[in-house]
Amino acid sequence: MISTQDYHGLLDAANLKRIGKALAVLDAINSPELEYRYYTYNAVWGENEEVLEVSDGEGDQMLILFRPEGCVINGYLDGYDQPDKTQVTRGLPEYFDDFIFGEPVNSIGTTFCLWYTAAHGWQTGLVKNEDDGSEELLFMLDGNPETYAEWADEYYGEETDRSPMDVAAVAKIYQGETLTKATVLGIVDEVADWAQLEEDLQAIGYPYDFG
């Protein structure tokens, strides 16, 4: 399980960005209403900056900033003690400072932090508490489409009679393939508003061709 204790399963920044966009696309397909999505992606967060947001709607939240230099992950889990932020970010490159020490991260809180640069790979600061809950938010970043399919079938299908999603369709999105209507209908049985989905894909910055 990926955590601050063992983060070797994390992809490099470029591939993590690809998976982050895929997760947001999949959630946009699964949940037309933005407020109920677990994963969202902002391709125009700032100049040369993009952000994946993970939120369970119950207080747990993770933000991942992507910049040309790499990426940084800020995680907050409700109910966990917040460590000394200067310690868990020890060694953090300065170009991530505005994000990690600014808003909205500062108001959200920080229970764990990791970052990636091409020169040094994944790193974290001083982690004194092994039980920081990081695996609860990082598990989906393993790059395995089956991980998402299993989670989403339960999360979105628990109280509905929808069909289990096609893992092959999930894999196509994980690979960054241009989204087609056929692939979308491998994820859900029907789409009520294709125009809304197109808007979501444009915001994420994901290619599509609905004919």
Rank of each mutant, 00 (worst) to 15 (best):
G46M: 03
L137A: 08
A13C: 14
V72N: 09
Y41L: 14
P164G: 10
M140D: 02
D142F: 01
W115Y: 15
P83V: 01
K17S: 12
E190H: 11
I29M: 07
H8D: 14
E58W: 08
T4L: 08
Q61N: 10
Y95A: 07
L11R: 11
E35G: 08
A13V: 08
N30Q: 13
Y208P: 02
A43V: 06
N144A: 11
T124A: 15
I19M: 07
E177L: 11
T117C: 06
D6L: 09
L77K: 09
A149G: 05
T111V: 15
N106E: 15
S3D: 06
V44S: 02
L179Q: 02
K172L: 04
F96C: 03
T124Y: 02
E158L: 10
Y208S: 01
L11E: 09
E58C: 12
S31F: 10
N15A: 04
L52S: 12
E154D: 03
T40W: 00
E53A: 14
A169D: 07
L201I: 06
E35N: 14
V25A: 03
S3K: 04
L114F: 07
Q87M: 14
L141A: 07
N106R: 15
N74M: 07
D98P: 02
F210S: 09
E53T: 15
Q82H: 01
A168P: 07
F66S: 02
Y208N: 03
A149M: 04
A22V: 03
V54Y: 06
L16D: 02
G91C: 09
A171I: 04
A24Q: 00
A14I: 14
D132R: 11
F66G: 00
A24S: 14
G79P: 01
E159G: 01
S134H: 06
Y38A: 00
Y76L: 07
S107H: 13
S163V: 10
A168L: 13
D189L: 12
K85D: 08
E50H: 03
M1K: 15
T160M: 09
V170L: 04
G57Q: 11
A195P: 05
A168E: 12
D60A: 10
I2C: 14
A149P: 08
T178E: 13
L26V: 06
L10G: 07
L179W: 02
A169G: 03
E199W: 10
A195M: 15
R37E: 09
R90G: 01
G75I: 03
E53W: 01
S163F: 10
D132Q: 11
G133K: 00
I29R: 03
Y95F: 14
V127C: 09
Y38S: 02
S3T: 09
